[in-house]
Design a binder for these strands. Structure first.
Length: 743
DNA sequence: CCTCGGTGATTTTTT
DNA sequence: ATCACCGAGG
């Protein structure tokens, strides 16, 4: 390991730093992963720190895997003993050891978002609350928000609101249900680890001692709870090193708080700050354009990213009429790149803001036979058949997991339907036990009658057989095979729609289990199953993303974080799509959209394309679009305007629309481009401003008070979408509707 | 108990 | 456009 030759001075400094906290501000493509892995290697090889005294936190499991690999290569050994993982995985690992100290049983399961929603819905039902009155996702958001901040969800229940009491009850019931099921949601993993350290000083002390050296990647995307956790385990004598980039903070909606990064020195006094500003990834042109976009935001730490790379090509911006044409045009360009320039498909990334935008690309690419992979849609473990089987495993691991039990009770069908389930649930509630506890109790006491009793007994018998198999060899693979065989799951699938495909998924799942088995070193048993389930609960699809196949990668901007491609297509550069409609609710949300744009742009190494469709269907309704305001920030001399129609007239009286954070002299700095112009009649040259803004309150003669959700068009074509208090959503023509502004 | 069709609501990003 | 939920009929 030759530091001087392989690292720049700032990276070297980050690697060598000893003692107090270290904050590395690492711009896009500045080789931060390199610095991090070298730092780890240096700790072990030259400073005599034992690998098991090192904790490295990454943002995704994929990043963890990669770091593990790189560290292994540097250290030259297979088993390093270093803890590398996401916050969630790390906390799960800690809790697996000590959760009994918090009154939970050791065999806890992890509830994902869907499981969480099931619990909330059943709580609502139990409390006889109409799901329309209190939306389940609203509860879910509240729970999430609280746990991300490390506070009790009860504290976030709105006190004034008429539904406050109900929400309070649901939140309390949710908590009870999860405890009863011995289940933790994602937020709990962090919060409970935090509580473990707070309430058990001895445990905390042991981890403080263990983790002499802690490294955290993507620090800008940590939330409050994670920050607190770090404060708990980072010891005074130890070394804490965090790496991040405030310009790439894109998970605010998930509770991430850039202030963790911005105010790091305040929370950890004596911090040394190092900035990595040399970019090794992109051309000068791409960097210049991206930097200009980033500058549109206030409150940045600010940095000067530079590169020794070539100037490179200008960016290409293209407008088409529809998303289909956008996809067609990009598909053709990709073909051209592949044939004329010999660019392999795998070096091309196509990004979009929302998953829903991927469809036209998939269709076009399929048609033109462009090999492609959509990253991050319909995760494997979310497919019904996989979830079913997983539920069996989870239930066998933890019989109190009622969500899983409810899923498998009648799957495959065995005549234990909703009615029976409700009866059983009511009985279990009465007995203050989990659903399975209630069922066993009911069977024992002979409370149930006739048919359903027999069916339940048969189910109980099945579970007994499975449990026996589990005791004999707890290997997930064998257990899974037993489940499939004993339940007749394959037969169950055969008749169904898409049966073939689903059977394949079952096979694949079994295969995954066998791979997992092969990785484990200990003899299979309860622990193995627990570890297997935990892994499944915490991996996402980007983690599975393998770039060995020569495919064009289609993904959302969020998925693209941390990746790079020689050629990038940034699509849907439209106001309302790239700054997403919903981000107009707050300046912070809007700033995040700009960062998202920045992240997308900085993924590109050589070529960056941006595009927009002038019309897009939203809610299945065709709407005109405006160019993304972010385009206005890009200096005109680095961008080529390519027009599908190839007509290019000047507009003289156009008003810039939306927020204008640009320097005002961009080619793209007009509100509407040629293609927007309606054929007839021509727009009047005056009165083209929008008179309403999103979020404004309005009063309608018959519909009453409402809030503006969307504004489209200007002048006599101005239309607003209003959500009225009475619950209706209406789209109204401003000029003709009996409307007035209200306060 | 299942399937079908209508209804209404709902749209960001995911550990 | 798509999905979840509900009630009616098989």
């Amino acid at each position: 390991m030759d530091l001087d030759r392989e690292l720049n001075p700032q990276q070297t400094e980050a690697v060598l730093h000893e003692g107090g906290p270290l904050l590395v501000l690492a711009g896009a493509g500045s080789g931060k992963t390199r610095a991090l892995t070298y730092r780890i290697a240096h700790l072990v090889l030259h400073r005599g720190i034992a690998p098991w005294n090192i904790l490295a936190i990454t943002f995704t499991n994929k990043a963890a895997e990669e770091m593990r690999l790189r560290v292994r290569r540097l250290l030259g050994t297979e088993k390093t003993g270093i803890w590398v993982g996401t916050f969630h995985a790390t906390c799960a690992r800690i809790l697996r050891q000590h959760i009994e100290r918090l009154g939970y049983r050791k065999n806890f399961v992890i509830y994902d978002t869907a499981d969480q929603l099931r619990v909330i819905k059943s709580s609502l039902k139990r409390l006889r609350v109409d799901a329309k009155q209190v939306r389940p996702v609203a509860i879910q958001n509240l729970l999430d928000k609280a746990k991300n901040q490390g506070i009790d969800p009860a504290l976030l229940v709105p006190q004034q609101s008429p539904t406050g009491r109900i929400i309070e009850e649901v939140v309390a019931d949710y908590k009870r249900r999860l405890e009863e099921a011995n289940a933790l949601d994602f937020g709990d993993l962090i919060v409970l680890a935090l509580r473990l350290f707070e309430t058990c000083p001895d445990v905390r002390a042991s981890y403080r001692e263990k983790f002499h050296s802690i490294l955290v990647d993507e620090y800008q995307d940590t939330n409050r709870a994670q920050h607190l956790l770090l404060q708990q385990i980072a010891s005074e004598g130890g070394e804490l090193c965090v790496v991040g980039d405030d310009d790439q903070s894109i998970y605010r909606w998930r509770g991430a708080d850039v202030n963790n990064l911005l105010a790091f020195e305040k929370d950890f006094p004596g911090t040394r700050v190092i900035a990595l500003e040399e970019n090794y990834r992109s051309t000068q042109t791409i960097l210049r354009a991206a930097d200009a976009v980033a500058r549109g935001n206030p409150n940045r730490r600010g940095k000067r990213l530079w590169t020794r790379n070539e100037v490179g090509d200008r960016l290409v911006y293209e407008e088409t009429m529809t998303p289909d044409e956008e996809a067609t045009s990009i598909a053709r360009e990709i073909q051209r790149l592949a044939t004329e320039l010999d660019i392999p498909y795998r070096s091309i990334g196509v990004f979009f803001r929302t998953n829903a935008q991927s469809r036209p690309f998939e269709e076009r690419f399929l048609l033109l036979r462009i090999p492609h992979a959509v990253i991050g849609t319909m995760r494997f473990y979310e497919r019904a058949e996989v979830k079913d089987l997983l539920a069996y495993l989870r239930f066998l691991y933890n019989p109190d997991d009622s969500v899983s039990l409810l899923r498998i009770l009648n799957q495959p069908l065995r005549g234990i339907g909703p009615t029976t389930q409700a009866t059983l649930q009511a009985y279990a509630d009465e007995q203050a036990t989990s659903l399975w506890g209630g069922i066993e109790h009911a069977l024992e006491k002979g409370i149930l009658s006739g048919a359903s009793r027999g069916r339940l007994e048969r189910f109980q018998g099945l579970i007994r057989i499975l449990n026996q198999g589990f005791e004999n060899h707890g290997s997930p693979e064998i257990l899974l095979k037993t489940v499939v065989a004993q339940t007749g799951y394959k037969t169950f699938l055969e008749g169904k729609e898409d049966g073939e495909r689903r059977l394949e998924n079952v096979e694949e799942f079994v295969h995954t289990a066998s791979l997992f088995q092969a990785m484990e070193e200990e003899a299979p048993g309860r622990e193995t199953l627990g570890a297997f389930l935990q892994r499944i609960a915490l991996v996402s699809d980007i983690d599975q993303y393998e770039d060995r196949a020569n495919c064009v990668s289609l993904m959302t901007l969020h998925c693209a974080k941390g990746l790079e491609f020689p050629v990038v297509f940034l699509t849907g550069m439209e106001d309302g799509i790239l700054p997403h409609q919903r981000s107009y609710t707050s300046p912070e949300a809007l700033a995040e959209e700009r960062r998202l744009c920045y992240v997308g742009m900085t993924r590109a190494k050589k070529k960056l394309y941006m595009s927009r469709a002038c019309y897009r269907s939203i809610y299945g309704e065709r709407q005109q679009t405006d160019p993304s305001p972010f385009l206005a920030s890009i200096p005109p001399d680095v961008i080529d305007f390519r027009d599908a129609e190839d007509e290019f007239d000047e507009i003289d009286d156009a008003d810039p629309i939306g927020i204008d954070a640009g320097n005002g002299d961009s080619v793209l700095d007009y509100g509407e481009s040629q293609l927007d112009r309606p054929p007839l009649p021509p727009m009047p040259s005056s009165g083209r401003k929008q008179t309403y803004r999103i979020g404004e309150r309005v009063e309608h003669e018959t519909l009453g008070i409402g809030t503006v959700r969307n504004v489209e068009g200007t002048g006599y074509k101005e239309k607003i979408t209003v959500q009225f208090k009475v619950g209706k959503i209406r789209k109204l023509m401003v000029q003709v509707s009996p409307l007035k502004k209200s306060s």
